[in-house]
Design a protein around this nucleic acid. Sequence first.
DNA 1: AACTACTTTATAATAGTTCTAAACTAAGTG
DNA 2: CACTTAGTTTAGAACTATTATAAAGTAGTT
Lengths: 141, 141
Amino acid sequence: MEKMNNKNKIFIDKLRSSGLRPTKQRVEISKFLFNRKKTFHFTVEELKNSMNLKRSKKISTATFYNTVHALKSAGHLKEFSLENNTSYYDTNITSHHHFFDNGKVIDIKSDKITFHKLPDAPKGKKIKNVEVVIRLENNNQ
Amino acid sequence: MEKMNNKNKIFIDKLRSSGLRPTKQRVEISKFLFNRKKTFHFTVEELKNSMNLKRSKKISTATFYNTVHALKSAGHLKEFSLENNTSYYDTNITSHHHFFDNGKVIDIKSDKITFHKLPDAPKGKKIKNVEVVIRLENNNQ
DNA sequence: AACTACTTTATAATAGTTCTAAACTAAGTG
DNA sequence: CACTTAGTTTAGAACTATTATAAAGTAGTT
Ligand SMILES: [Mn+2]
Ligand SMILES: [Mn+2]
Ligand SMILES: [Zn+2]
Ligand SMILES: [Zn+2]
């Protein structure tokens, strides 16, 4: 890539160090995903719509899917599921927990939940991770 | 329904008391789902394939979807999600936890997990339920 | 500048699910 | 019992999220 202003350097490096060519599209998607203070939870379609809204030259659907998969494989995104039939992605790749509040997802830092009792893994298996979902509802009245 | 042998009475009553007409199809599906000792976790397509395999007169896809939705609305099934884009259903409608082992789902009774620390719900919200997923992997070697 | 492997793209294909509207049936009514 | 009707089943179309295809474009190398 010719045009490599400093603002993009960090994302170009991130892509390159993951074995991904820092194409125009990947750099823009990475910047959109990772250039924020708070965790971002999203579906590929949401990502596509919000990024393409402000663009004259649209990025194709396939590229959004390809890039999100590539970033997930590289360990920069985690996938998770809500109750519908859509994959969600999480820019917080650490092991952590969630509040689910009517489709809205909020991170809970790992150390905010600790266990008093946990079952052993079945024979021949071991625990890879433990993740908690706390479902919320509105207070009465 | 004319043919109401005693084996079916319990399922007919279950349907009727939920405001659902005990049709031939619904009774058979209910029997398949609920006439077992252990929790059953399934997708609608899996249910359809395993029930229709042994039938000459097949039950239609739409009826499987309709019936599963009706049973869910009546509170006889719970829906949950794995990492793919498919809805899973659970015949255990109590609040409980799961092991996920490469697509295999195993129930964990609620009292097998207790918490030492849990976050408060955000302002204006309250906790509806807390569910834990313990992901498993094979022991090394 | 020329080359090549990788990437993007438009488009088709697939999978799970929901919708539609016509045929069927459970269950009540006389 | 007929008769009626509201609820149900069904085949098939439609829809949505996602993946596959293969041609055109581009990053990185020489
Ligand atoms: Mn969505
Ligand atoms: Mn499946
Ligand atoms: Zn998160
Ligand atoms: Zn379960």
